[in-house]
Design a binder for these strands. Structure first.
Length: 306
RNA sequence: GGAGAGUUGGCUGAGCGGUCAAAAGCAGCAGACUGUAAAUCUGCCGGGCCACGCCCUACGGAGGUUCGAAUCCUCCACUCUCCA
């Protein structure tokens, strides 16, 4: 039985702080599963734990890569698996903290051993997709070679349509024929999963305040510096906060409009996270409105399991 | 004081005689998630039902024209712009 603790919850519920306290108390180390905090230099907008916080207990998988380096869920799962194994080897407990539940699932349940991303194929598919009736064509093509995926993936869902076709072109097998390596629940990496929640109105209030704070802390300046270092097409520049800050710099948004848009996107993101979490099984829910009580509860759970 | 423009569902905002419970976006709610995932996408969204159909209430207010009005006319209320 592996000892592995997951701290989940929507943005702004105090996951990082709770996790660090937990790590200090039970001898754990923090492992990030946030897709933006992975990037070096994207600090303010991703609400990355401060250097001070990080000095309290070992933190892993933060600032792992440069913004212009390609990185995906499979890369994450591989890196995280190694990191967790190493922590356990040293007799400590990995405490996973983040909000990218797709990455978390890739780590805990694994991904099928199918072909990865192929730049040439993607370019070819993108060329078709960019044509007038392109997306519809691609979806029709997908339906032809893989009826199941055709039904499951919406024609407008470009990312998924293109990925499904990419797998087909690279392997000659429909994507729906590739299954997770460990489908049975026994193989699933056992983990104690806890999730922090706040009732909607309080959460929204919290998130709004956090966005204000990010801009006040210099999100636009941070973005300007990052844009000087990496191409503006780099992945993390599409993430919440950075996309809007970049728009301010390019002059297409006023600072007020950018903040409003960031607030909007942050709320929508939190909602999606909730949807994901609700579908997740074996989750221990913790009320985030009282941080100390939440911590006590988390500690009891951690001790009961480890 | 004079001349115009406007008042539409929680908000922004189309509609300008029927096919309108009313486009679109936002917000809200629910959901999906097999290598871009803070991404991408789907559904619902006036109310009530014995719900693939029916009923009620709705486009500032009151009347009117018409088989039929959010759409035309009259008056009233309010808002805005320009000229004084």
């Amino acid at each position: 039985m592996r000892r592995l603790i997951v701290v989940a919850g929507t943005t702004g519920t105090g996951k990082s702080e709770l996790a660090v306290r937990l790590a200090e108390t039970i001898g754990g180390e923090i492992v990030n599963y946030d897709s933006v905090q992975i990037y070096r230099g994207f600090d303010i907008g991703s609400a990355k734990p401060s250097a001070e916080t990080r000095s309290r207990v070992p933190h892993h998988l933060f600032d792992l890569i440069e913004a212009d380096v390609e990185f995906n869920a499979a890369d994450y799962a591989k890196a995280a698996r190694e990191t967790c194994a190493d922590i356990e080897r040293r007799g400590r407990t990995p405490i996973l903290v983040g909000g990218t539940f797709f990455y978390l699932r890739a780590l805990l349940s694994g991904l099928p051993e199918m072909p990865g991303r192929d730049a040439a194929i993607r370019a070819r598919l993108a060329r078709i997709a960019d044509r007038p009736r392109g997306p519809g064509r691609l979806h029709a093509w997908l339906s032809k070679i893989d009826a199941q995926s055709g039904r499951k993936i919406a024609p407008a869902d470009r990312h998924r349509v293109e990925r499904a076709l990419e797998v087909w072109l690279a392997s000659g097998r429909p994507i729906s024929s590739w299954e997770r390596p460990k489908a049975d629940s026994n193989a699933e990496t056992p983990a104690l999963k806890m999730a922090l929640t706040l009732e909607r109105p309080r959460l929204v209030e919290m998130l709004d305040r956090r966005v204000e704070a990010m801009y006040a802390a210099g999100l636009v300046e941070e973005t300007r510096a990052l844009l000087a270092r990496y191409p503006s097409s780099s992945r993390p520049f599409t993430s919440i906060g950075y996309a809007e800050a970049a728009a301010v710099i390019s002059g297409s948004l006023t600072i007020e409009a950018a903040m409003a848009e960031t607030r909007r996107r942050t709320r929508a993101y939190a909602k999606r996270q909730m949807t994901w979490l609700r579908s997740e099984r074996n989750v221990q829910w913790l009320d985030a409105s009282d941080r100390d009580k939440a911590f006590e509860a988390a500690l009891r759970l951690a001790r009961g399991t480890t």
